[in-house]
Amino acid sequence: MEVTYRLILPEDNAPLAEMIRKVFREFKIDRPGTVYTDPTTDHLYELFQVPKAEYWIAETNGEIVGGCGIYPSNGLPEGCAELVKFYVAASVRGTGIGKQLMAQCIDSAREQDYQQLYLESLPELEKAVGMYEKAGFHRLQQPVGDTGHYACTVWMLKDL
Results as ranks from 00 to 15, higher is better:
M1G: 13
E2A: 13
R6M: 08
I8H: 04
P10F: 07
E11H: 14
P15Q: 08
E18D: 14
I20R: 08
R21Y: 07
V23F: 07
F24R: 01
E26D: 14
K28Q: 13
I29H: 04
P32Y: 06
G33H: 02
D38E: 03
T40N: 08
T41K: 10
H43L: 15
L44R: 05
Y45N: 02
E46D: 04
Q49H: 08
E54C: 11
W56R: 02
A58D: 03
E59C: 08
I64L: 10
V65Y: 05
C68Q: 03
G69Q: 02
I70R: 07
I70D: 04
P72D: 04
P72Q: 06
N74W: 15
G79H: 08
C80D: 11
E82R: 09
V84G: 01
V88S: 00
S91Q: 05
S91P: 01
G94C: 08
T95C: 09
G96Y: 01
G98D: 07
M102F: 01
C105V: 04
D113T: 12
L117T: 00
Y118G: 09
E120G: 07
L122D: 07
L125A: 03
A135V: 00
G136Y: 05
F137D: 06
L140T: 12
L140V: 12
G145Q: 05
D146F: 15
D146E: 15
G148L: 11
G148P: 05
C152S: 15
W155R: 06
W155D: 10
M156S: 10
D159P: 02
L160V: 06
